[in-house]
């Protein structure tokens, strides 16, 4: 099967995020990492490709930087990548993002598209569904388990009350939760191989997408602060202080 995995490069979550004071967009250094949640998608994609003697193509939109995050995913074993980067896409909304990604995905051709349930920096959690609509295929979302049965994909779809079993023949878009599989670590060989794997860099207009963002950030303001509480070191009796507070709150 031709598997496409949507992956995002994001600023390292370990360093504090900053917003550009003028545009209000997240500042994106050249060094970006693979969104951790996308490692699950890449692993799932590799597993499906391995089972079906298929291929894994990564598709990503956003500032390319030095492509470090994309190489992380290639080092895991993906075959190639398409990266859409173009100054007109700065601050693109989810609809634009989905248009661009669907454009790139259609151009490649696909049986299965895999995405995360939500990205770490944007977490709108709607881009994959928008992609599925543009591609006119079902979206099997919030998968905590994925099974391949011939050309049928079956998942456990997490819901607020448990999970549903949902299945469909391909083509399909699947979104995977963290925990669906255990992502592999790149091997040294994988890291070396990633250096020479093809990364196709394209612009939105090359995909025939005109950017037209229908929303605008008008302000960013601090939330009302919570007053700092009391912090105590447990000296063996801290549980008594908890009980006092529960009494004060009149819950015991």
């Amino acid at each position: 099967m031709r598997v496409i995995v949507c992956v995002k490069q994001i600023p390292d979550p370990a360093s504090p995020y900053e917003l550009d004071p003028d545009t209000h967009f997240l500042q994106r250094p050249a060094d970006q990492v693979l969104d951790d949640t996308d490692r699950y998608g890449v692993e799932m994609g590799l597993m499906i490709a391995e089972q079906t003697e298929g291929s894994v193509t990564l598709v990503s939109m956003g500032p390319a930087g030095n492509l470090q995050g994309i190489r992380q995913a290639l080092a895991m074993g993906a075959d190639k990548a398409v990266v859409v980067d173009d100054p007109s896409l700065r601050g693109a909304d989810t609809l634009t993002t989905a248009r661009v990604l669907s454009g790139a995905i259609s151009r490649e051709g696909f049986d299965v598209v895999i995405a995360g349930t939500e990205s770490t920096d944007g977490y709108s959690g709607v881009v994959p569904q928008q992609i599925a609509e543009f591609l006119e295929v079902p979206a099997l979302t919030f998968a905590k388990k994925v099974e391949l049965d011939g050309a049928t994909i079956r998942i456990e779809r997490q819901t607020e009350y448990g999970y549903d079993i949902v299945e469909t023949p391909t083509p399909v878009v699947i979104t995977v939760t963290a925990g669906v599989v255990e992502p592999r670590y790149p091997t040294f060989k994988g890291i070396m191989a990633a250096k020479s794997k093809p990364i196709d860099q394209v612009t939105a207009s090359e995909l025939g997408v005109t950017v037209d963002t229908g929303q605008q950030i008008i302000s960013i303001r601090p939330a009302p602060e919570r007053t700092a509480g009391e912090i105590i070191e447990d000296d063996g009796d801290a549980h008594l202080r908890i009980i006092q507070l529960l009494e004060q709150a009149k819950v015991i």
Binding site: T213, Q215, Q216, I220, R221, P222
Partner: peptide
């Protein structure tokens, strides 16, 4: 910690 206000333009 921060609140962002976004207005629809479409």
């Amino acid at each position: 910690a921060q609140l962002v206000d976004t207005v629809f333009r479409a």
